[in-house]
Nucleic acid binder design. Structure first.
Length: 415
DNA sequence: TGTCCACTGGAAGGGAGGGCTT
DNA sequence: AAGCCCTCCCTTCCAGTGGACA
């Protein structure tokens, strides 16, 4: 009988001392290194809510992985702790909402409203009601007793870009109508420019307080990693220089702490899988490659069917040794691929949107070019390795039929 | 300088699918 | 059951555009 396949992993417990989730950005440690000044500034803004008053609204800006979300979640823990310690008689609700998930005005109101509705059957459904009705349900349940509510809207730019700022307007004016409760907003965005999209009434009310989180430098990232390492790892599994490498690689990408933590976690997992007692630079470099590959593969695998067909067209064209395509050429190929795979082709207008989405995801590169009298179009090429991408796309049962497909299309323009 | 090409990308609206209200 | 209202995905329509060419 062969050996149980799990045994070798059970033996090997040397790298992680505790739950490996400690090395995820979503884990909030007891202390956040290099964010003291931001934390005390926010505390200064929020402290009126401990006296039952409305705190000023706050906008937080900063790039990915600069600790905005971590600080926002950390403040929840701290403010609740403060209430408990001082034995304050106050019904404070600190509500965190990720607007990438609740990305419609309806969704945000529903999310907030349901926090105050205890009875499961009376909860606001995810669709079906008028916005006005949802607002009223939220209002009534919120104002049925004296409450202080702080709503954190993380990734607020995503919501505003997608659905406008109606919900902000509603939430800002709600204080004028509330008799018992008070609501303050904290908006978080990694896009400094997004506030230009806001209505002036919203902008002036929301912009009572503003704060920018600077990127971490390599030294600060190293401190963050060090802190997590001490909680997560057994002793002597990692050298200072290896931590430094993780920090340096992440610092190169605008000081992204999330990236640094991912690198370290994946490197640790690789070392563990290889039954090695220590994490080395080799593991960090391998982790870097793996993270990049995983991101892209996952994005491709979860693409909608028509986006996959478009990508397939681009890849097949490149594998024939051709360079980039124009929108028109790609559309012709796409229509053919759609028919061959039993899909009804979408219109060219819709395809231009899907092309832009693929470009934003970084899977392809598309730039607008003009050929004078030849017209204005997009120059489109892939940004992923053709062979492995093709294999990934062919995993889709609906696209499998395209395995032996050959492109036959005449070039209309030469790029 | 004006024309013209092959689009780009905004706006409006349709309809399917989901869910509540009367 | 009919009437609303929502989101999501899509189509239709069309004004606008950069730059080669006459």
């Amino acid at each position: 009988m062969s050996e149980n396949p799990f045994i070798s992993y059970l033996d090997n417990t040397s790298i992680f001392k505790k739950d490996r989730d400690i090395l995820r950005a979503s884990y909030i440690p007891d202390e956040l290194p290099h964010r003291d000044s931001q934390i005390s500034a926010i505390a200064q803004i929020l402290y009126p809510s401990l006296k039952g008053q409305r705190a000023s609204n706050l906008m937080i800006f900063g790039k990915t992985g600069t600790g905005k979300t971590a600080v926002a979640k950390y403040m929840k823990k701290e403010i609740e702790e403060a209430i408990e310690m001082a034995k304050l008689d106050i019904d404070l609700h600190y509500i965190y909402i990720n607007c990438e998930i609740s990305d419609t005005n309806y969704g945000v109101l529903q999310n907030i409203g349901n926090r105050f509705i205890k009875d499961f059957d009376s909860r606001i459904p995810h669709t079906g009601l008028s916005k006005e009705r949802v607002y009223n349900m939220l209002f009534e349940n919120l104002d049925d007793k004296k409450r202080v509510v702080i709503v954190v809207l993380d990734e607020l730019d995503k919501l505003v870009y997608k659905s406008g700022d109606d919900v902000l307007y509603d939430l800002l004016k709600i204080n004028d109508e509330l008799k018992n409760s008070k609501v303050s907003l904290i908006g978080i965005s990694n896009d400094l420019k997004f506030s230009e999209l806001l209505d002036t009434r919203v902008k002036s009310r929301f912009g009572e307080e503003k704060m920018v989180f600077p990127p971490y430098n390599a030294g600060q990232l190293k401190d963050i990693l060090k802190q997590r390492t001490e909680i997560a790892f057994a002793e002597d599994v990692i050298d200072d220089s290896v931590l430094g490498l993780c920090a340096a690689l992440a610092a190169r990408e605008h000081g992204d702490a999330r990236r640094a933590l991912d690198l370290l976690r994946v490197a640790a997992e690789l070392a563990e899988r290889g039954h090695e007692p220590r994490i080395t630079e080799k593991h960090v470099k391998a982790a870097k490659n793996q993270i990049e590959m995983d991101c892209v593969s996952e994005a491709i695998r979860t693409l909608p069917q028509h986006s996959k067909l478009i990508l397939m067209g681009i890849i097949m064209n490149e594998m024939r040794g051709r360079g980039s395509l124009t929108t028109g050429e790609l559309y012709t190929i796409y229509v053919d691929l759609s028919r061959k795979s039993g899909n009804t082709p979408l219109t060219q207008r819709r395809i231009t949107d899907l092309i832009s989405e693929l470009d934003m995801l970084g899977i392809i590169r598309a730039s607008v070019v003009s050929f004078g009298r030849g017209g204005r179009t997009k120059k489109i090429e892939s940004a992923v390795p053709p062979e492995s991408t093709r294999a990934l796309l062919l995993e889709d049962p609906q696209l499998e039929i395209l395995k032996d497909y050959r492109i036959k299309v005449q070039r209309t323009l030469s790029i």
